Simulated assay, not measured.
Amino acid sequence: MTDTTSELGPSRLQKAVEAIAISPKDAAKLVDGYRRSFRKKFEREPETPADKRRIASKVIDRYSKFAAATGAAAALPGVIPGVGTAVAVIGGGAADIAASLKIQIDMCMCLVDVFTEEMSSEDKKHLAFVLALAGSLEGLATNTGKVAVEKVAQKLVFQYIRGPALVTIKELFKKVGVTFLQKTAAKAIPAGVGVVFSGSTNYVLTTVVGKIAVTVLAKDV
Rank of each mutant, 00 (worst) to 15 (best):
K170Q: 14
D61T: 14
T144E: 10
M119W: 05
V149L: 02
T2D: 04
A73N: 03
L8R: 11
T4E: 13
K40L: 08
T70Y: 11
A98E: 06
I161C: 01
A68F: 01
D26F: 03
G199R: 03
A21M: 05
T142Y: 11
S6W: 15
Y203R: 10
A213Q: 00
A95N: 06
S57N: 13
D106C: 09
V178K: 10
M107L: 10
I22D: 08
R12C: 00
D61R: 11
E122D: 13
T5I: 07
I55L: 13
G33I: 06
G92T: 15
L133A: 00
V176S: 07
I161K: 10
T215R: 08
V167L: 13
D3H: 07
V214H: 05
A28V: 03
E150C: 03
Q182L: 14
Q14H: 02
V209M: 05
R44A: 08
E138I: 02
V178I: 15
G92I: 03
V112K: 08
A21D: 07
I189H: 09
A165V: 08
K41F: 04
S198D: 14
V89F: 09
L217W: 05
V114Y: 01
T142F: 03
A73T: 01
A75S: 10
V167Y: 12
T207I: 09
C108F: 10
I97S: 01
T168R: 12
K170D: 14
T206I: 00
G82R: 02
E18M: 12
F129N: 05
G163E: 15
V214N: 02
M1S: 10
P24I: 12
G9I: 07
R44W: 00
A16H: 03
A27Y: 11
E117S: 06
V193G: 00
Q14L: 09
A148T: 13
S23V: 11
S136P: 01
C108T: 12
Q159K: 05
H126R: 15
H126G: 08
